[in-house]
Design a protein around this nucleic acid. Sequence first.
RNA 1: GGGCGCGUAGCUCAGUGGGAGAGCAUCCGCUUCACACGCGGGGGGUCGUUGGUUCAAUCCCAACCGUGCCCACCA
Length: 888
Amino acid sequence: MTARPELPKTYDPAEVEPRLYATWLAARVFHEDPDPARPPFIISMPPPNITGNAHLGHGSTYTTMDVLTRYHRMLGENADWIPGQDHAAIATEAVLVRELAKEGRTRDELGRAKFIELAWQWREQYGGAINESFKRLGFGPDWERERFTMDPGLSAAVIKVFVDLYDDGLIYRGTRLVNWDPVAQSTLSDAEVEDEERDTFLWHIRYLAEDGGEGLVIATTRPETYLADVAVAVHPDDARYAHLIGKNVVLPIVGRAIPVIADDAVDPEFGTGAVKVTPAHDQTDYEIGQRHELPMPTVIDFDGRVTAPLWRYDERPERRAPIDAQAAKMAAYAGLDRFHARKRIVDDLRALGALVDEKPYRTKLPLSSRSHAVIEPLLSLQWWVKTKPLAEPALTAYRDGRVRFVPERFGRTYAAMLENIRDWNISRQVWWGHQLPVWYTPNDDVVVADSEDEAKRIARERYGTDDLRRDSDTLDTWFSSGLWPFSILGWPEKTPELLHWYPNQVMITGREIIFLWVARMMMLGLRFAGGIPFETVFIAPLVFDVHGRKMSKSLGNAIDPMTDLVPKYGADGTRFGILRQMRLESQELRFDERYCDEAKRFATKLWNALRYTCSLPEDLPGANVLPPREKLTVADKWIITELRACVEAVTRAYDGFQFGVAADTLLQFGWYTFCDWYVEATKAPGQQETRAAVLSFVLNAFVRAMHPIAPFVTEEIWQTLPHDGATIVTASWPDVAEIPSFPDDAAVFGAVIEKVDQLRNARSEWGIAPKDWMRVEIPASLEPERDVVEAIATLARAQIAPYDGGDGSVRDRILAVRGVADNAKLRERYARDIARLESEVARSQKKLANESFVAKASADVVAAERAKLDDYSRELERARGALAALAS
RNA sequence: GGGCGCGUAGCUCAGUGGGAGAGCAUCCGCUUCACACGCGGGGGGUCGUUGGUUCAAUCCCAACCGUGCCCACCA
């Protein structure tokens, strides 16, 4: 006799979820050690920034990781999901600088050592906040393996990779045009720059010819940089300017003469077809400058202010060489912020008559993805990774099919990005991060080593000095993230974890960081860890609001799962509701909260199915035991067959990253198939012998199939039912081999459903109150099928009386069941049925009469059509007969 | 300029080369002994437009229109 707990009427996630999570942690269910006896399944959690909060993107992306890990664990694999966090150099430093500013302090007066200390304190205090959210959402990564990108082990891996790449000639130091963030006071890689459309002007400015001629008019969005112009470029074939090529024009106000040159990069159609060339402050101009060997004077400093005089870049500020050309005439702009300078210069040019036109113009501004400041392209001496030799193997791995993307098309995005890769600027001028393992002698000889002692040894040997200063720069955050799939497994040590769990099976992330992160893990994994870092990259859709807008605080449409969803719908409702909206081919997920509400009600519905099961007087047998087959009713066989189909569909869906399909399938089966039909059918008298066992069997398998998506309610139900094992987390995935299938009986029950639908519809139309029994006549020949008759009686709430007649298959006899009403209403009903059936028969006949259909369509399609016609015809006969009988 | 996604019921979205679907919303009826976070029933769509392939197109192909995203040095 199974214990029969008193179950509360309503399922309460707020009580259940934290309680169950605590038991899971106590039982260490999420922890795994490498076990070569089982297939590995490992996912590296994309490390959230220590400054981050859980947002809806985590709700979708991270939930899919939790689902897959839980699913593969249930399949018996050696499944682990390794969590961690990213030090997020620039983002964290920005937060700290803001905090300091509130106290009226600055980073520089605090000093590097104290600042780093403060950052560590901050990380200890706030860095783990997101983990608490993850736990509340039910995520089950292996917390005992949590890593941080600045852990000693991971930092050592970073240093080793840097030193090795340097020794292999793949890291170099060079002066290039960089993306400078004047707010963060650091460079950014191209990938960290975002474009944003802004309204501005296209200013047309006349540069007079040196000989006093009218010269030409250039068009620019950045008039303030004209001070550092070194040339004007026109297209070589542009007849309008051919006479000026090789001659000089004169910059207004400052009066400096610069040459007119010809370059293919100029589009003669755009603007005036004449481009000012400022190599130190524009990427295209920089390239033109290189081609024509132009000087590259700088006029905007690292703080975004105009300088006068111009200066020639050098990494040591004290060695900057001033260029005195017309410095006095620029003095009025010296020290002005670049945007103020723009306004002043435009005004002055206008006053001078040099401003020819001022056209409203919409352009894309480069913004820092970290500080949102407008990026200033600047010349700077930085450290770079030579990417082409790394990109080649990463492309080959993709083209060979060693790495696949889901959906496939993102592979093409990945490949296109790697094909056009440019060198990677990895040095950052922030303090929080991995400091470059680079030292300089007083003569600026460079020493790269994995420790200061080693650096000194090398310096003594090569340069006869150990008077070294360390480069103050730190590494791009993505440099350490790029090592993540193997650094967290203990690389470069050959740990059991690395040997068994590398490569990872799946990497799940968003399409916005395919290049930023995925490509770098590929490049660095292939070079350092001996192979691809993961076999499959699943790109989860981005989350938007219900109208397709990006969620943002300023728009007021941002949804915080922790405050807006979990309290209302529970973690299960939140997870299930989000996943239900995920579709493989869609790039966006328009989040609609109603799905979470539905999911929460679904949990309650299942809970009540459990209450019903537990309230039955019959005994519940042990876990996963079905009654002998000969005792099973048609309804039993139907639900077991449906369960099997459900498990198969859900398995396929998880295997194919079709999380929305999995959730749909579970909802459909759990609510409609199981609760609305089977549970109701068990109330028939003939069901009592088998129903408790079948309900328990089906629920048990069903909650296991649903557990990866909704871990809590499924655990609570599973624990209440007879079960094997301590927790559903480590229970086994439902084995379809142990779920029998009865297609013929299932089809019979399908006919019962069809008939009951008809009878319910008739009841409604005939105005029979739900509480009243409906009178139904069944053919006498159906009477021996007791469970069918009882099912119809119970589901349609029908009072059964026999009539003489009925033949053919069980299905035919079920369809011959008829409701009883007054003649007028019955006639109406039959007339409508006849009309519907006649049109179906006509459609089918027309199709079969079409010779080319019969000749060219496949045989089974034609056969199926014939069977349909046959069915419809017989139903039509029956309806006509019934109508005739009434009339007589 | 290249690449990609999406246009199906009022809303958000499934789906299929052969009789148009779900949830929500709406309307009607029910405190039916698991559940009113529920149950039963109904109304509502020429599947973006125009062509093509096919015996057959909402589905495959082309063009177009609308919409969103990604990449690229248009000043």
